[in-house]
Amino acid sequence: MGGYESILLTVITAATPLLLAAIGELVVERSGVLNLGVEGMMIVGAVLGFAGAQATGSAYIGALCALGAGMGLALLFGFLTLHLVANQVATGLALTLLGLGLAGMIGEAFVGQPGIRLERLHIPGLSTLPFIGPVLFGQDLLVYLSLALVAGVSFVLFRTRAGLIIRAVGDNHGSAHALGVSVIRVRYLAVLFGGACAGLAGGYLSLAYTPQWVEGMTAGRGWIALALVVFSTWRPLRLLAGAYLFGAVGILQFHAQAHGVAIPSQFLTALPYLATIIVLVMISRNRVLTRINTPACLGQPFVPDR
């Protein structure tokens, strides 16, 4: 395997869980809901994805379980924040705590067991092409799904009526309501979509990235996904760039270390986070950019009859 090709493959693996979780949260936030429970939905997705694969012997069924697990927690979040109008920030944090605890409890029996890997695609003739073969045609299904989701979300949000409704609900739920849009229903669907994506992202960790279950294996990736959404200023294509940039910096710092580059490893480890902060500062200084893209009703509760 050539050097650059294998680096690229590693970057794709590192970026995919971030991209999956973040693209879901992007839709959630575009509809005006802030769900800070991404980490919790991811970890429950990871453990149930692992469990589903172990029980059935199929990583694909595992991935479906992961998706369902994320949706289950998202439904709970939706019920609390949309129905009962609980504070979204507090509920999201509670969801993360609940998810981490729940996953540890469910996963106790699976510690120390090797998992079932999501198989990589193999297209005869194409997957064996030099360089582009393994990169373009030799990934597992979730990698393609993550890219398709970016394209799909981008198209739906900005080119369809449904997208217009989602953005309208996120920007001004009062007006959307006055126009006859069911704000709560739109937000429910967005939250469920976000949960499904976060669950899948967790499943990707325990089925493809490192096929195993250990407690706390998401290791903060849910929080990174949340940061990426802001980093992208709620634009799907920028999110794609951000996730891959983040993945690439994380991988390249290991290569730099192994090459003996004389930069302190602590600095290299912090580099991706530093990059996020710099971009955040840059975009928040650009008022136009921020104002156009930030969902105006982000995090605000909506009570229909008000």
Binding site: I7, A14, G250, Q257, A258, T269
Partner: peptide, 25 residues
Amino acid sequence: VKIVWANSWYDPGKEADAAKALLDQ
């Protein structure tokens, strides 16, 4: 010996990335 620091005791994904980087080198 080539040494890389994960700056973490415990992050399966990161540890896997470090391992891949080393093998690639």
